[in-house]
Design a protein around this nucleic acid. Structure first.
Lengths: 167, 167
DNA sequence: ACGTACACGTGACAC
DNA sequence: TGTGTCACGTGTACG
């Protein structure tokens, strides 16, 4: 049974370009398969299905491991549920700060705050730092999206550690 | 032109089984592709090539992160003297920086450097950040004791985490 | 002989 | 419009 070539109005040249393109695509895919298999350690079967399967498995393992390590790093500092998060209810109640979060690591603290009135907030914060016997090393205020980001670096007297306030 | 079927002595039933088997294999592969794409966060194109490419990329990112976290954990347990210290020999060899130390916590990195020529050092650092596809959020330079302290805040593209360079 | 895996060319669909 | 991606059936090689 003869197939009518006229229904597909592709020229022979176009058809050949199509097969060439498909060839290129295939070998591109295969390159990626090889690359993926190279990134996976302990892979014995170079079967495509095995590559994909072990890739999924490996990614999940890495994610669990990373999460576990991060939690462990956080636990070493005390607070279990939200690692390194400290109480910031006092600042929230002042209604001056739209968003604040804080973390600390090894005696260093990082606090991020979004606020509208940087002057009042910084003044308040510097007062708090004063109460805590902290030495201000650096303080910078930059405008960002109609509000401000403030970064404060403070140092604990006596201790060598720093407090990093990124407001 | 008639094709001689006798050279391939497969029965019709056998041929059809072959077709079915290939179909099953294909859909098994596709299931794995879907599964792989599900394990990769922040994946927009569901293209096969993109899935493979982003999978490789993501695995490498996770490996680096895990390695970093492991080093951190190891140093915290084993060497209590300078926790979280990373290799800075490259910068030391430049003789531009008198002292540098780096720490990181929860995907955030803190680097402290003492240097005499802040311009060159910051330029060098910003170049490195550029290479790492980091977005510079803030950069401040303050004079201190005849040298300078530089603070750089950068953000990892795609990730929500920050890199804090306090130079 | 059988099952499995792969590359190939081809038609179809989408942007 | 063509450029890219996909699924399909088929031939073929390996264990």
């Amino acid at each position: 049974m003869k197939i009518d070539k006229s229904i597909t109005n592709k020229s022979h040249l176009q058809v050949h370009e199509h097969v060439v393109a498909e060839r290129l695509r295939r070998q591109r895919l295969n390159k990626l398969f090889i690359g993926l298999s190279a990134t996976i350690p302990g892979l014995k079967k170079l079967d495509k299905a095995s590559i994909l399967k072990d890739a999924i498995e490996y990614i999940k393992r890495l994610e669990e491991q990373s999460k576990a390590l991060e939690e462990e790093a956080g636990k070493q500092l005390g607070k279990p549920k939200h690692p390194n998060r400290i109480d910031t209810s006092d600042y929230h109640s002042s209604a001056l700060i739209s968003d604040i979060q804080a973390r600390f690591c090894e005696g260093e603290i990082l606090i991020k705050i979004h606020c509208k009135q940087p002057k009042q907030v910084t003044h308040k914060l510097l007062g708090e730092l004063e109460k805590l016997h902290l030495t201000i090393i650096n303080c910078s205020v930059i405008p960002f999206d109609e509000s401000h980001d403030i970064t404060i670096i403070a140092q604990v007297l006596g201790l060598g550690s720093f407090l990093i306030f990124t407001v």
